[in-house]
């Protein structure tokens, strides 16, 4: 899924209802963030949620959705494999809607990742690659093909 599509999909959730912030991370690496907190706080939050997920894993437990209601707002955490999404929202009553929207995003996101892996795998099959260099990522090979096609058309 391209960063633009991720940004567009999450932007819709970010602006829904009383949502006031959103972080998507893979492990501790932040993939997308739009939340009214300093960069250091976002990194620390991402790291804390990763630690929480790790703690549960060590206990042989796998929660996938956690919600915390604070005085200043609520946080919904979705854990999907190594991905974590944190959604900050003001109205606690919206938690189920926010959870469904976040899960729907992950379905699309994972489908896109699978499709990308499949396309890259197909391009890397022996005999298929022809004279392409054996080094480099699938993404690079894909870019080369597009470039060749563009040259032929030009």
């Amino acid at each position: 899924m391209s960063p633009q599509i991720v940004s567009s999909s999450l932007g819709a959730l970010r602006n829904a209802g009383s949502v006031f912030g959103l972080i998507l991370a893979h492990g501790q690496e932040i993939i997308y963030q739009d939340a009214p907190f300093p960069a250091q706080t976002l990194e620390e939050l991402s790291s804390t949620v990763d630690d929480i997920a790790y703690y549960f894993e060590q206990e042989g437990r796998y929660p996938d959705q956690l919600s915390f209601g604070f005085d200043g707002g609520s946080i919904l955490i979705i854990i999907q494999g190594r991905h974590r999404m944190l959604v900050f929202h003001h109205h606690a009553d919206e938690v189920d809607f926010v959870g469904k929207a976040a899960k729907a995003f992950f379905k699309d996101y994972e489908m896109n990742l699978l499709t990308e892996e499949w396309v890259v795998g197909q391009q890397a099959e022996p005999g298929e690659a022809g004279s392409q260099s054996s080094s480099g990522s699938g993404h690079r090979q894909s870019t080369q093909r597009v470039a060749v096609r563009a040259n032929q058309e030009g």
């Binding site: 907190f37 706080t41 620390e44 939050l45 804390t48 949620v49 630690d51 929480i52 703690y55 549960f56 437990r61 796998y62 929660p63 996938d64 959705q65 956690l66 919600s67 915390f68 209601g69 604070f70 005085d71 200043g72 707002g73 946080i75 606690a92």
Partner: peptide, 27 residues
């Protein structure tokens, strides 16, 4: 105990100390 500990850790980072509730889905 686990949820209270998680709330404490998250609240510290967000400077929100008073947790009113916490819930999770597991399986």
């Amino acid at each position: 105990m686990i949820l209270q500990e998680c709330a404490l850790l998250l609240g510290e980072k967000l400077q929100m100390s008073a947790v009113a509730h916490a819930i999770f889905y597991e399986g």
